[in-house]
């Protein structure tokens, strides 16, 4: 009996340990707060990095944790962006209301799409998500009257936050706003992924048959996670709309979905922070290289990506944790 209890408490402490905030994580978020003070002239860029990171987090939920491959995640980002944009252009200027409606709309779209995805294997899913993405792009392109088509949606006016903080040229309000929303969504995702539900998702990813055998309702789980990921992608899209006060049709482009995949793979999948780290590295590298040479920078970016994917398996965070393990191993040897 006591043996059982000890075992149970070991499991509980394992789960608790996973849920505890590690110092590295706290340092990460403090750094983001620090960015506000250290780089006051780069805040617009910093908030776009954060938005991309949040978007990548949403992809991580379905790709990294649940193992659903997708090439059309920009669809939900775009739905969120256009919902927030259309609302702001038609008189609802409150940013929070915009976020909420954008998230819900994207969530509903995600819920509906998830039924298409519960059937078929990886290849089918790739094709379906790609198709949904392209379809939405064309719909927005042809509905020029409502969306502005390729010229983009104009007249997006965003009201002040709480009626006090307006969005300024330096992007100060925008950065704080994006940081807080990202952090809240991150905390929510983190606790979800560390709950038994998160474990269930991972077991689905590893082996569907076994997961079914231990009583995990696979299709319900996938529907849930796909809808929640769509909500977060939608909110990320709405944040982009609200901070740039414009919606371009490129929010729905295939390029955005593809870049996002790259970002997540560079950062590391199923690590919670992979998306953010990938976004930081990818966008900074892009910015830095294109400033060095605006014409041929993509060549160097390509080389960088090839080297990274070849030699940094598991992404940057994967590489880091291997490095740390190596270091620990070496130190343990020293001690013994």
């Amino acid at each position: 009996m006591s043996d059982n209890l000890a075992k149970a408490s070991r499991h509980v402490s394992f789960l608790r340990g996973r849920e505890r905030w590690k110092s590295a994580e706290i340092a990460f978020w403090l750094t983001l707060v620090g960015v506000y003070f250290v780089f006051p002239s780069s805040l617009v860029f910093a908030s776009q990095i954060l938005i991309t990171g949040l978007f990548a987090l949403s992809l991580d939920m379905i790709l990294g944790y649940a193992g659903i491959v997708t090439l059309g995640h920009a669809a939900f980002f775009g739905i969120g962006a256009y919902t927030a944009g259309l609302m702001a252009a038609h008189g609802w200027h409150d940013p929070f209301l915009g976020l909420l409606v954008a998230g819900v709309t994207a969530g509903i779209a995600g819920y509906l799409c998830s039924f298409l995805l519960s059937k078929g294997g990886d290849l089918t899913r790739l094709m379906i998500t790609l198709g949904i993405g392209l379809l939405l792009y064309e719909v927005v392109n042809s509905a020029t009257k409502y969306t502005g088509g390729v010229d983009g949606l104009q007249g997006v006016e965003i009201g002040k936050l709480f009626g006090v903080f307006g969005f300024d040229l330096y992007g100060k309000t925008a950065y704080i706003y994006v940081l807080i929303i990202s952090f809240l969504l991150f905390v929510f995702t983190r606790s979800m992924m560390n709950s038994p539900y998160g474990l269930a998702l991972r077991s689905i990813r590893e082996n569907q048959t076994r997961a079914l055998a231990i009583g995990i309702p696979i299709s319900a789980c996938l529907t849930n996670i796909y809808s929640i990921a769509a909500v977060i992608a939608g909110i990320a899209g709405a944040l982009l709309t609200q901070t740039t006060q414009f919606v371009g049709i490129d929010v729905l482009s295939f390029q955005r979905s593809a870049d996002l995949l790259l970002i997540l793979i560079i950062g590391g999948t199923a690590t919670m922070y992979g998306g953010f780290v990938g976004a930081v590295v990818f966008l900074l590298a892009q910015n830095w290289l294109s400033n060095l040479n605006p014409q041929y920078w993509q060549f160097f970016l390509g080389i960088l990506l090839i080297v990274m994917t070849l030699y940094l398996r598991g992404g940057i965070l994967g590489g880091f944790s291997r490095l740390v393990n190596l270091f620990r191993h070496w130190r343990n040897k020293e001690h013994s």
Partner: peptide, 21 residues
């Protein structure tokens, strides 16, 4: 774990500094 955090912060600062014109 703290060490990773430290390295990470340093790296982030480094990259950001590069991009800051």
């Amino acid at each position: 774990m703290f060490r990773i955090g430290f390295v990470f912060v340093m790296l982030l600062c480094g990259i950001l500094a590069l991009s800051a014109d």
